[in-house]
Design a protein around this nucleic acid. Structure first.
Lengths: 155, 155
DNA sequence: TATTTGGTTCTCTAAATTATGAACTAAAGA
DNA sequence: TCTTTAGTTCATAATTTAGAGAACCAAATA
């Protein structure tokens, strides 16, 4: 990564803000931005530090977090001690499945709410049930949709 | 809301934590929990304050936030100055549409990244494009799925 | 008019989060 | 063995966020 242009910097910030809104710390979001914007699919630790003007420690922690979340990976080359980090671009289908699981978990909480309510307010139970069923519908159909898309692509 | 049972309290906390993970402050999430768990579809300001042992100011601010996000509403009764707050249960389809818009916005940022990269790394552009196209696919198909579901329900 | 009620706004503190810089470690090279 | 390199960990500072409590306000009641 030679030197970032003004345009690249701006786009990195936007991608960073998007990630912040998804719950990531700022530096972490910026690293994702950098990895998406970069000409090369992998950047060294040092390049990340220097391109974004952030500390080594912040970089180290952010990279660990992103690896745990399976959003980035790194490759190495023998005879070179550095690690080269890149966005894990093929991982989005895992992300979608995770998201759907979390939606399903929430629908289970709503079911519990209905159970606790028992017969005290059947009308409310019914309205909550409609929501539960939609959440379940989504977490069934979205993965199906995704597989359909994958199949069409890879044939 | 008489007095919450231990089970109700526990479920409220779980629903609260789910909302925290979606980016809400704790009190705000607990209020959502309370409104989902409650026997009655609407609770007064005072009942919320007392059930959750939270301050009036925290309650006021959280209720404002939840209204802005269109997750709750309140009703009033003439001759009664109180407001009665309840979860906006029928609003989930709006939530889904918003989520899809935000995904689409992100895919536009990725498109920009590809544009800025130009011909410097066509292979990377291609991998990013695959992701973009999937995001676009989702934000087209999920609303369609939802409408299908709505139609089947309401006929 | 004075008081109560229902809720909002303001000020301040406590807690949590984020990131820095320095110290450190382990491997590689001189 | 001494030094450099690559990155991690630790202590701490800075910032942000969350929420409490008091003061406040407007409408309703006495």
């Amino acid at each position: 990564m030679a030197q970032l242009t003004q345009e690249q910097r701006q786009l990195i910030e936007k991608i960073g803000i998007y990630h912040e809104q998804q719950g990531f710390p700022p530096v972490t979001g910026r690293i994702m931005g950098l990895l998406y914007v970069s000409d090369r699919p992998h950047l060294s630790f040092e390049e990340i530090v220097e391109s974004l003007n952030i500390s080594k420690s912040a970089t180290s922690n952010a990279l660990q977090l992103l690896q745990q979340m399976r959003l980035i990976e790194y490759t190495t080359y023998s005879g070179d001690r550095k690690r080269y980090f890149g966005a894990l671009l093929e991982n989005w289908h895992e992300e979608v499945l995770n998201k759907m699981e979390s939606i399903l978990a929430f629908s289970k909480l709503l079911r519990q709410a209905n159970e606790l309510r028992g017969q005290l307010n059947p009308e409310m139970n019914e309205r909550v049930l409609e929501r539960i069923e939609f959440l379940e519908f989504l977490s069934r159909e979205v993965p199906a949709l995704m597989h359909k898309w994958l199949k069409e692509r890879n044939q």
